[in-house]
Write a protein that binds this DNA or RNA. Structure first.
Lengths: 257, 257
DNA sequence: ACAAAAGTGTTACTTTTACACCCATGA
DNA sequence: TCATGGGTGTAAAAGTAACACTTTTGT
């Protein structure tokens, strides 16, 4: 199926199969080479990029729609995925913008077609293990690429706002939730974990204090093995104690009152 | 306009003027008599209660819709109001439930009427100053009443879940945001503020430590006046330093990393 | 043997907790 | 004058921050 067939199919099938005026957009974070990355789709006509997003089936749970999008782009399920904000400004979608694109596709639609109406979108953010991801663009995009969070190109519509808010939420959650499972491989070293935190927070942390604090959460299991083949003292390998990790996810880490 | 005219009007006007499949529900908290209260509407036919909610205009911002609901029920604007979660389970609304109600109203609608379709709802929670509120039920409800959070009656659909989640969010936010402006009168005493925290958290706090911590946030202004007419030592009156209060709202209070 | 990076420990400082005494007011 | 509740202080405990030395490994 080529792009135009996909779009035409969506336009007609969506009339009855999809919720109108509500969509999901996913900010998918990965971690690689000491960089926090985000997954973006190249627009088919414009020199602009977009967050992976999608529509919601008439009888589909909103979370399920977000999982579906995530799975389609990355091949992954069972990842951390959480809604973080609804973007409900009526000006956020832009009828003219979509009309131009459709004209370039050679598709003619009515001014009041459902696709052109105002859409409220639910923002989700996901944390995924970079090495496990198999990228796949959606039907209407040119390609699907990881971008360093510091080098994000120009995005369509309000996607930049959505991305910024996701990042702010992620940084916030670091304060009271454990992070790392789903972003790191099964086994990792303490410096790996620290780098992840430093990357998300964009801030250097003290190695020794970081270790103590992390171990204090009691969500880590230290293996007897060490990382091999490094030109200096080999760090221990850790994994998450999933039972405790999930407890910490539910109960929070640093509660104040 | 009586209830039936209201409902009929909604049914037809909503066809074009409202977003379908998306609504807002508001958990409106107030504080009075040392109790945390929530505003509920009595169902017109059933021995059940509901959160104040509403539909979203075709070109209305979602936040504006929530503000509108809040204003209509309480007479207030300029209050703290924040979205906290989207409830997107397709099973959350119940076609049969609404159909029964409409039959009792003597209104006949088609099975596929927009009002009967699945609705995703955005949960908002508000903090309001109890004494300033003028209660007004909506067009389709019998009455509008404050309920102690510990005595909440049975609610329709998934409104209990929404309420619980709002309360959990509020408790969470106490950890990193100042709370009190919008829930307390302009001037209040330290014991008043403490009682508010204790009520929200459902937990006793140490008087002296509470005071020190609160003052440490530097969001309070102490007046030279004291509360009059109390049968013991008169407590000082405080007000919020709005500039600092708002800074604290934006930046957070207890940041961890 | 050396450079690079990891492991570990100690001390000062800050924050939190627990607790006690004095003071002002209306009854 | 006394009971009630509010203002304030202090010492111990816990947690955080800053910092240094030793260990391991590949080159």
């Amino acid at each position: 199926m080529n792009k135009n067939e996909s779009i035409s199919g969506l336009l007609s099938a969506g009339e009855h199969n999809l919720l109108h005026s509500l969509s999901v957009d996913c900010v998918i974070f990965g971690f690689h080479d000491g960089q926090l990355k985000v997954l973006l789709l190249k627009h088919r006509h414009r020199d602009l990029w977009a967050l992976p997003g999608g529509f919601i089936g008439r009888e589909e749970e909103t979370d399920a729609a977000a999982y579906r999008v995530l799975k389609e782009r990355t091949g992954l399920d069972e990842v951390f995925l959480q809604q973080f904000h609804v973007f409900g400004d009526p000006g956020r979608s832009n009828k003219e913008f979509h009309l131009q694109d459709l004209r370039k596709d050679g598709i003619d639609v009515d001014e009041d077609h459902w696709l052109l109406q105002r859409f409220v979108t639910i923002g989700y953010y996901a944390l995924v293990e970079f090495s496990k991801v198999t990228l796949a663009p959606d039907n209407i995009s040119e390609k699907c690429v990881w971008w360093d969070i510091h080098q994000v190109p120009e995005l369509i519509l309000d996607h930049r706002t959505i991305l910024d808010r996701a990042l702010a939420t992620l940084r916030m959650q670091l304060n009271y939730q454990p992070i790392g499972y789903n972003l790191l491989p099964k086994q990792f070293t303490m410096p790996d974990l620290q780098k992840l935190y430093e990357t998300i927070l964009d801030k250097k942390l003290d190695r020794r204090n970081f270790q103590r604090k992390m171990l204090g959460f009691r969500i880590l299991l230290r293996s007897n093995e060490t990382k091999k083949g490094v030109a200096h003292k080999a760090p221990y390998l850790y994994s998450f104690d999933l039972k405790r990790y999930n407890e910490a996810l539910n109960e929070g880490l640093n509660f104040g009152w």
